[in-house]
Amino acid sequence: MLIPHPLLGLRDAQEFTYLGDANLMNRPDPNAPNAEAMFCDYVFLRDNPAGVHRELWYHEQGDRSWLVVTRNTVTHEILGAELASDVALAHREGSK
């Protein structure tokens, strides 16, 4: 698989390590009244879709950036990649 790194172009997936569902970026509020249950879901439960999946890859053998890669889990086709920091910033802007 080749991952289209937004800064470095097409890079071999072997240069990356895989973390999982991009929702792991959305850590629950630790001060919420139901924080324990929310953290349990956050740590252990996954949507695990068959089809388009947004997921976190770390460019360990490259520029050490975290990417959000959109990939089809049925065909392994990679549909896009963004810097995770950009995704987080956009999310923060959106929630203001």
Partner: peptide, 18 residues
């Protein structure tokens, strides 16, 4: 292998990745 897919039809999320 398909547990998440099938159990999602019952509204469940599982501690599983395929």
């Amino acid at each position: 292998g398909s547990s998440s897919r099938v159990m999602s039809m019952a509204g469940m999320r599982l501690p599983i990745e395929s």
